[in-house]
């Protein structure tokens, strides 16, 4: 087997050892990689990072609740053909011009190997993953209308993300390599923030992280803030010129981190009772999470 260059962290995406292994295993075995994890842990960004790292281009297939598996392969635009036959001067006997390849189809006919991201597969109907089993396994499909078989020229590296809104069928899971992205610990998070804000003051970063992990540890939050919210918040702190002393005392721009009213009130109550100051020290010494 031809050996692929191995995937690794890129300039703007840090990857853990296990995740890197999982990606390389999936690429080496030619099996789709199924990624789950808390929102904001960079599931979708992973595909982009893989593409960047391996120097391949990326095709994104965003799944919605109405997406059908067939759309990913091809769409036969019968309505257009019918209209053309009634009013047009087009030659409608050439069916091929009404076949439009979907994202999966595009990835198959590409001359170069690429990365295909099937984003949020759990949004679609329950049967959706099952309908793609054959195509992802054997990497070809048949178009009855034109009696054509589309065969993948280069097996694409397939990354599938799921938010666990629906259970995925067993038959589908059996063919995947699975990885669950843990929420980063403080050390890793500091590195992630550094990637995005290389010039950030050390004190500011430490305080921001302490406040952030304290927030996440508050019991009863309906939606815990995630990495992307932390990055937005850091941006807000920098733009707002907030000095680091104020961060833990009052958590400025709390609305950037918390999106639910109840959460907001809960945290404000805790802040007033001095929750963070008491906890801040213990957060600093805590290891792992």
């Amino acid at each position: 087997m031809e050996r692929m260059p191995a995937f690794d962290s890129t300039a703007d995406y840090l990857v853990s050892n296990e995740l890197r292994n999982a990606v390389n295993i999936s690429v080496a075995l030619g099996r789709p990689l199924l990624i789950k994890g808390e929102p904001g842990t960079g599931k979708t960004m992973l595909a982009k990072a893989i593409a960047d790292s391996l120097g391949l281009s990326l095709i994104i297939w965003n799944i919605k609740s109405t997406t059908k598996a067939q759309e990913g392969l091809y769409v036969y635009d019968t309505v257009q053909r019918l209209y053309d036959s009634q009013f047009g001067d087009q030659d409608v006997s050439e069916i091929k011009q009404y076949i439009k390849l979907g994202k999966l189809g595009e990835a198959f006919v590409s001359d170069e190997q690429l990365v295909l991201l099937i984003d949020e597969i759990d949004k679609a109907d329950l049967e959706f993953p099952n309908d793609l089993l054959w195509e992802l396994d054997i990497m070809n499909f048949y178009i009855p209308e034109t009696k054509e078989t589309i065969q993948a020229r280069q097996r694409p590296a397939v990354v599938i993300t799921s938010n666990a809104e629906k259970e995925l069928p067993d038959a589908f899971l059996r063919r995947c390599i699975f990885h669950y992205i843990d929420f980063p610990d403080e050390e890793m998070m500091a590195r992630i923030v550094r990637v995005h804000f290389p010039d950030l003051e050390k004190a500011l970063l430490e305080e921001a992280l302490a406040a952030f992990y304290w927030l996440r540890s508050v019991n009863g939050l309906q939606k815990k803030p995630s990495t992307s919210e932390l990055l937005d918040w850091t941006q807000a702190l920098v733009v707002g010129g907030i000095s680091y002393q104020r961060i833990c005392a009052e958590i400025p721009f709390l609305g950037v981190l918390l999106k639910k009213n109840q959460d907001f009130e809960l945290v404000l109550r805790r802040l007033q009772s001095g929750g963070l100051q008491q906890k801040a020290t213990s957060i600093h010494t805590r290891r792992g999470y």
Binding site: N17, N21, N24, I25, L29, I177
Partner: peptide
């Protein structure tokens, strides 16, 4: 995967490989 040497020669490699391949839900 083992035949392709994806585990590396360590129990840790084996642990992560086995988990990625055999386990399909957290």
């Amino acid at each position: 995967a083992l035949n392709k040497g994806l585990a590396g020669a360590s129990l840790n490699g084996f642990y992560y490989l086995a988990r990625a391949v055999l386990v399909k839900s957290e």
